[in-house]
Design a protein around this nucleic acid. Structure first.
Lengths: 156, 156
DNA sequence: CATAATTGTAAAGTCACTTTACGAAAATTG
DNA sequence: CAATTTTCGTAAAGTGACTTTACAATTATG
């Protein structure tokens, strides 16, 4: 990465932290996933994809959805989402198209967009394998089950 | 929060997702923690604190550290950190002071900054209690143990 | 059918940065 | 210890990702 002006070496979270620091644990872990996805995307040749575009290319992927619905899902203003959609359309990752029988244009991934999504999935599956190996299959699945429960609660 | 121009209602993650979607689970959970911290901070009266300031007021807290060291920890340029430090200094959350025997000014939290940090800790302890209650004490501690292991691995 | 709400875009403004720059301080080298 | 290199703190200008304001067009509601 080595962005000029950005210094190397990162935070190492003290493994013996008490309750008030699990925010840092979540943050660091999530950032690592995001970093890995971004690297995988660039390594796969999608070098015009920017970090900001993750707002659109994240679960749930944009496929037959209206821009304003997308804005709601991603917690952004319609204008902010459209700003990214204009870019992603110009780069050929998404397109605006009216499904037959309708004249309302929706957002769809293009073939290129779907290849990008597959690259992301591959990366996540690889991380899943690595982590399951490091943590132990059963223990890691239990971890994911708890994470699902917590993220469900986080919807409020 | 109802920022004007930003639409209500958020993403609900499908609880039956396969391996490629734990990125979304981590993201949503982390965002919830961050949201709760931000709300607690404002509810405690620190209404001049902005989301961007989390870059400085996150683990490890700035106490007797040089600006450039802070930049490294937070993975930002010296200029970007200093931009935030100037604001946080003007708002009275941090100060630049040379420890006795030295003439090099370091970053310290002020009394107000420490009250802010305590507010964040209180919020995290509350979330910890709520989650432990919902998930079950033992199961939640096991979850945190795995999260620590993963975040340690994420340092590379 | 009329009125209100929502939608898609546009344009200008703002914030949180990056980029470039530079003199001062500190570390390294000979 | 002197010379050179590296790191440091900060400033100033530029940029990307937004927010704010705006508005005409479409869609929902009474």
């Amino acid at each position: 990465m080595s962005i000029p002006g950005l210094l190397p070496n990162a935070l190492a979270v003290d493994p013996d932290l008490g309750p008030p620091f699990f925010g840092a644990l979540l943050r660091v872990t999530w950032q690592h996933v995001r970093d890995q996805m971004f690297r995988a995307i660039h390594a796969a040749g999608f070098t015009d994809f920017q970090e900001a575009h993750f707002a659109v290319f994240s679960y749930p992927l944009p496929d037959g959805v209206r821009p304003s619905e997308l804005a709601r899902q991603k917690r952004m203003s319609r204008q902010a989402i459209n700003y990214l959609l204009v870019q992603l359309e110009a780069l050929g990752y998404i397109e605006r198209r009216a499904p037959e029988g309708s004249d309302r244009r929706l957002i769809y991934m293009t073939a290129r967009g779907r290849r990008l999504a597959e690259t992301i999935f591959d990366c996540l599956r690889r991380l899943h394998r690595e982590w399951a190996c490091e943590i132990g299959e059963a223990r890691f699945n239990e971890f994911l089950a708890v994470l699902k429960q917590l993220s469900a609660r986080a919807q409020n």
